[in-house]
Design a protein around this nucleic acid. Sequence first.
DNA 1: ACCTAAACCTGGGCGC
DNA 2: TGCGCCCAGGTTTAGG
Length: 288
Amino acid sequence: MPELPEVETLRLGLEKYLVGHKIEKIEIKVPNLFHGEPKNVTHAKIEGVRRFGKGLVIDLSNGHSLAIHVKLTGQLIFRDASTKNEPLSKKVGEDLPGKFTHVIFTLDKGAILYYNDIRRFGWIKVVATDDLNSIPFFKDMGPEPPVAKVQKGRAVLDFKKFSEILSRANVPVKVTIMDQKRIGGIGNIYANDSLFMARIDPRRKGKDLSEAEKKRLYDAIEKSLRKGLKYGGASELNFVDALGQDGGYQNHMLVYGKKGEPCPNCGKKILRIMIGGRGTFFCPACQS
DNA sequence: ACCTAAACCTGGGCGC
DNA sequence: TGCGCCCAGGTTTAGG
């Protein structure tokens, strides 16, 4: 779902369309997902959009920022004066606003930013721009793979760090690479596909991998994240970009969601097991 | 300190 | 038809 490639795709669109707009009004229909003072956001100008792992930060001219996590089903959709009558997205909220539109930002020049979220797992927090670390999610995030712009002050995951992280991990390697405190940005889709690409059994413990296997996995993670970015993210659930458009990676996934289908490499059936409480797809013949 | 599993929430798919 | 059940997964939290 929204993992690094999806959130970066969203960020690119938001940066393109939001920067320069002023926020004139906020309507909060579901208070539970909005934290902080709305008054610290209104009348401010949007200056930039940053991404940290799967987290987004919209920076404002008044020293405050909107820190946002869309979790599984959150969407941020931009409409301007000429597109404001278009449906929000094919998947959620055909109406304007839709049943799942929980926050509406009215911008200047007739533009609008909608926050939709079917499952309401996501959050929007108003925070001082220089105090992002007051949010544990940002404070505790591990280094992220260098496949898109890594923000100032954030560590980049190079191979040496990656190798050290795996060497300490006494849990299945899939759990380790998905742990945002250890590595930022990888979720279930790209974890499954990266492990398949690297031909590593997701159940193995990180500390048991050889240096050569770790290198294969490091390279595979970069490759699958870049592939996700190239296709504009995966939209098999509710992900859409800043204009409400689907990504394309769901048509290029290697093993994720393919239980019972033939392995793209050897033709044997893809298995599905649970690891760390999450569905895990792999080829029992190719991944050892 | 480290690890596991449940909780959060709701649409969609399945069996009956 | 439609009801009940289970499943999906990013993060947090509670418990071992």
